[in-house]
Design a protein around this nucleic acid. Structure first.
Length: 577
DNA sequence: GCCGTTTTCGGCCCGACTGTTTTCAGTCG
């Protein structure tokens, strides 16, 4: 219900924008849309409790429209706007470089109402003849269409991260470059990225930008000036990704880093706060008239505004400005003492038990759970009862050869379509650690089959199950999450003391940030695990940590920050029930 | 459309860049 309503308000905002409505009114609808999407509770619940208008950003007008939607399934304003504006027009807003004013112009002057119409108008030359548009603008729009069609939406963070690291390394090797950092949504830990933002301190801006834009991997150069360079690179599968570089003086680095890290909504709040004190905040610093109050570091900017220094992952204008919000003990990668979901060659992994253990040790871990697939995951070479018993012995033997590091015997046990676990309790009892996951039959259930929610609840009720692996089953940009009743699952996890996983694989990031927040607010423990199928994937823990931090997870919320002794005590308590 | 320790009207974040202009509008982050 929430996401449906959020989409409706987003549509209203798009349509209003094209019809030339007041920007502030448009922004109100966008804000309401985002607020509803982020809501932990169902809007219907809030409506029935009569507290809808207590939510910040929802006023009399939008509350009325929510009510209208709940009662009739429609919103009259949206219906009217949809009649007025051709269906293909809002899609044009997605074209970079093309905004509402130009869209309104080309629609009224040329009857353009879709991307294909627009392409024709470009080809025929009629677009270039419109007032205010010239050859350059038309080229920019044509490039924007090409980019939109190639980029296929947002880039998963794992892919964007690799691109960013490549350019970081290149830039850091240049002379006259003092510092280079990642900004933007990548720094904030988002699961998908629009473009990569890089920031550097240097006195030789033009030369740095020249080296950046002439790097062998560059496909197109969008801009190249003394302080800014912008390029497009190719990704696998024909997709493209934009990378922006900005060069700034050291005195402004903190302000610019803060500014280009965003989010936009967070920055708006921050500048409002500066304004309330009679100051001005921009990308160059925090100013009182001509006097610069802060700018070299982010810490001093937040401090001058009487705020805790906010970790990038919480800068979303959710509740981080609320009084008393503190972020000192958010979980960090350095807190993680072991990985509790990994695979070996015994099932579908690429490395041996010993190799995985060595790689985990190299990361500074104290323990590692080997959790290969259970018998029903035939496609993943799941282990039969007999093979699992041999595997248990092999893990124990490997562990006996290790000093100062512990291998835990585990399994990733399938949750079957009827909600039963794939191994009998006697075998689960022989394991130190049990991950239970759904891998097949992820549809709705029905015809006597259990729903994913009911299957998960049944698994949670088993005392040997320590954690539910990748609970929603989504694959970013490839497979939708299962339809789960998350409040029920979170409540059951809390009641039974079962943990929920934050799967750190960048294809999954499951639980996602908002679910993390729901879970920890209910007092549920998390495990941040990589689900590594090879040694190199263990390092991806950072993506899971970022996701957990976006959900405001503290060190104490995450089981695998515990020393081994405490972790084992936790398992023992869970088994006693 | 939302909001209020300048509170029911009149604000609502800010600057850079670009391309088309001859003083500025549109777009972006």
């Amino acid at each position: 219900m929430n996401s449906e309503l959020a989409r409706a308000f987003e549509n209203i905002a798009d349509l209003l924008q094209i019809t030339g409505a007041d920007t502030f009114r448009v922004n109100s609808y966008r804000r309401v849309s985002r607020t509803i999407r982020d809501l932990a509770d169902d809007v219907r619940t809030l409506h029935e409790a009569g507290v809808l208008q207590e939510v910040k950003g929802i006023g009399k007008g939008t509350a009325g429209k929510i009510e209208e939607f709940l009662e009739t399934g429609r919103i009259a304003l949206l219906d009217e706007l949809s009649k007025e504006v051709p269906a293909g027009l809002p899609r044009l807003l997605e074209i970079p470089g093309l905004g509402p004013k130009t869209i309104a112009l080309i629609h009224s002057a040329l009857k353009v109402s879709s991307i294909s119409d627009l392409k024709q108008a470009i080809a025929s030359g009629s677009l270039a003849e419109l007032p205010g548009l010239g050859a350059q603008s038309v080229k920019k729009i044509a490039d924007g269409i090409a980019f939109l069609e190639a980029s296929k939406g947002r880039t998963p963070r794992g892919i964007a991260w690799a691109v960013a690291e490549n350019y970081l390394t290149q830039l850091r090797s240049l002379p006259d470059v003092e510092r280079v950092e990642i900004a933007g949504s990548l720094r904030r830990g988002l699961e998908t990225i629009g473009d990569v933002d890089l920031l550097c301190i240097s006195d030789a801006g033009a030369e740095v930008v020249r080296r950046f834009t002439t790097h062998p991997g560059v496909k197109r150069v969008l801009a190249a000036g003394p302080t800014k360079g912008s390029i497009v690179v190719d990704l696998e599968g024909g997709a493209e990704l934009q990378v922006d570089l900005r060069v700034v003086p050291a005195a402004s680095f903190g302000a610019t880093w803060q500014y280009f890290t965003g989010s936009k909504e967070h920055n708006v709040r921050l500048r409002e706060r500066a304004g309330q004190r009679g100051w001005k905040l921009n990308e160059w610093g925090l100013h009182d008239g001509d006097e610069m109050l802060a700018g070299a570091t982010e810490e001093e900017i937040y401090a001058r505004l009487d705020l805790p220094c906010m970790p990038p992952e919480v800068r979303e204008d959710r509740e981080e400005f609320a009084a008393g919000a503190a972020f000192d003990d958010l979980v960090s990668a350095a807190d993680i003492r072991g990985d509790l979901h990994t695979h070996t060659t015994a099932s579908d992994g690429k490395n041996s038990i010993e190799e995985m253990a060595a790689a985990a040790r190299a990361l500074g871990y104290k323990y590692l759970a080997i959790t290969d697939h259970s018998r029903s995951s035939t496609i993943a070479n799941g282990l039969s009862l007999e093979r699992m018993r041999e595997h248990i012995a092999a893990i124990r033997a490997a562990n006996a050869r290790l000093k100062g590091f512990t291998l835990l015997v585990g399994c990733e046990c399938d949750i079957l379509p009827n909600g039963d676990l794939d191994y009998p309790d006697e075998l689960l009892a022989e394991c130190d650690w049990v991950v239970a996951s759904i891998h097949a039959a992820m549809g709705k259930g029905g015809r006597g089959k259990l729903s994913p929610t009911e299957r998960t609840l049944k698994a949670i009720a088993n005392r040997y199950v320590c954690v539910i692996g990748h609970p929603t089953g989504r694959l970013i940009n490839r497979r939708e999450a299962m339809e789960l009743d998350m409040p029920r699952i979170v409540a059951a996890a809390h009641d039974t003391g079962t943990a929920l996983e934050v799967n750190a694989s960048w294809q999954r990031l499951d639980l996602k940030d908002l679910h993390v927040r729901q879970a920890i607010q209910a007092g549920v423990r998390l495990c941040i695990d990589t689900d590594a199928h090879r040694t190199t994937q263990l390092a991806a823990i950072t993506h899971g940590v970022a996701t957990a931090r976006r959900g405001w997870a503290r060190r104490g919320d995450v089981l695998n920050t515990l020393p081994l002794k405490d972790l084992k005590a936790w398992v023992a308590r869970k088994r006693r029930g």
